[in-house]
Design a protein around this nucleic acid. Structure first.
Length: 275
DNA sequence: GACCAGGAATTGG
DNA sequence: CCAATTCATGGT
């Protein structure tokens, strides 16, 4: 396995914070599928070991060259964020593949993480070619244009979202997402919302998790609850909360969102084990 | 702007 | 076992 030194990084929290869905943990190894790639990652302290992908890709995917320490320093000036920052320190925002990210979050609407993971794995098994790494096999994510069989899509359990996936598959021509990613954030967001099944929240997830728009602030039920609790007067609906967050957190809104989201979910899980 | 369909697995009681 | 919830969107 290759080795690199990593600064301020937490592999487990990065992968298990709902940014990507096609990964699995085998002992201390994480097996991760991103489009046609399938690679392995393991962290021990400040060292990251990996194979199945080159160092350039891994650094870019895990946002390792971003000055996270500086960003968390800026966000720490807002006292309401400090518990989340202390608990999730090292969590980074990935750069997923825009196509896989778009389809993944269209499938995520009004669903839950275990179900989304299962659906996306089934989707890859139905349509994707086999890829392998370290004796393990996985399926590549089906490329744009290949999600055109409604009956097959429905076998993955995505239900009514199959129509959105198929229409988005039809509308998304070659190079379109790359062109959208090159636009300024507000325009990229508006372009993404032209795809059926993509509203404010899904568009912001794609902007944040695959296009490096760190100013995006996706508002889901968990973040909404956290914001209402921490910032009384931030607004009463998702649109107002997003506006408030973008004004308050500025270019760090995306990291603020991801820390609030993951912290809230960690807390919930901890409660379940009697803490 | 508020409300509801559509949809199924997971979680909670 | 049954009820509530789930990283929302689109149409009315």
């Amino acid at each position: 396995m290759n080795r690199i030194a990593v600064p301020l990084f937490d592999l487990a929290q990065t992968l298990e914070s709902g940014q990507i869905f096609r990964y699995r943990k085998v002992d201390d190894l994480y097996l991760v599928a991103v489009r046609e790639r399938f690679f392995r990652l393991r962290q021990s302290g400040g060292r990251l070991e990996f194979d199945g992908a080159d160092a350039k890709f891994v650094r870019d995917f895990l946002d390792l060259d971003y000055d996270l320490d500086a960003a968390l320093g800026r966000l720490s000036r807002i006292r309401q964020l400090r518990p989340a920052i202390a608990a999730c320190r090292g969590l980074r925002i990935v750069r997923h593949d825009p196509w896989e990210c778009l389809i993944s979050f269209i499938c995520s609407t009004r669903s839950n993480i275990p179900k989304i993971k299962r659906s996306l794995n089934l989707l890859a098994q139905c349509h994707g070619s086999v890829v392998s790494c370290g004796g393990q096999t996985e399926h590549a994510f089906p490329p744009p244009g290949s999600l055109c069989n409604l009956e097959l899509l429905k076998t993955t359990g995505i239900g009514y979202r199959a129509d959105y996936v198929m229409q988005t598959n039809r509308l998304c021509t070659n190079g379109m997402l790359e062109r959208i990613a090159a636009l300024p954030y507000p325009e990229a967001r508006a372009e993404l919302m032209r795809f059926p099944g993509v509203g404010d929240k899904v568009a912001d997830c794609v902007c944040l998790f695959s296009m490096r728009f760190r100013e995006a602030f996706p508002v889901d039920v968990w973040v909404q609850r956290a914001m209402l609790e921490l910032f009384p007067g931030c607004g009463k609906n998702e649109r107002q909360i997003r506006q408030f967050a973008m004004q308050t957190f500025g270019p760090d809104a995306g990291y603020a969102e991801q820390y609030l989201f993951h912290y809230r979910r960690m807390m919930k899980k901890a409660m379940g084990y009697g803490l």
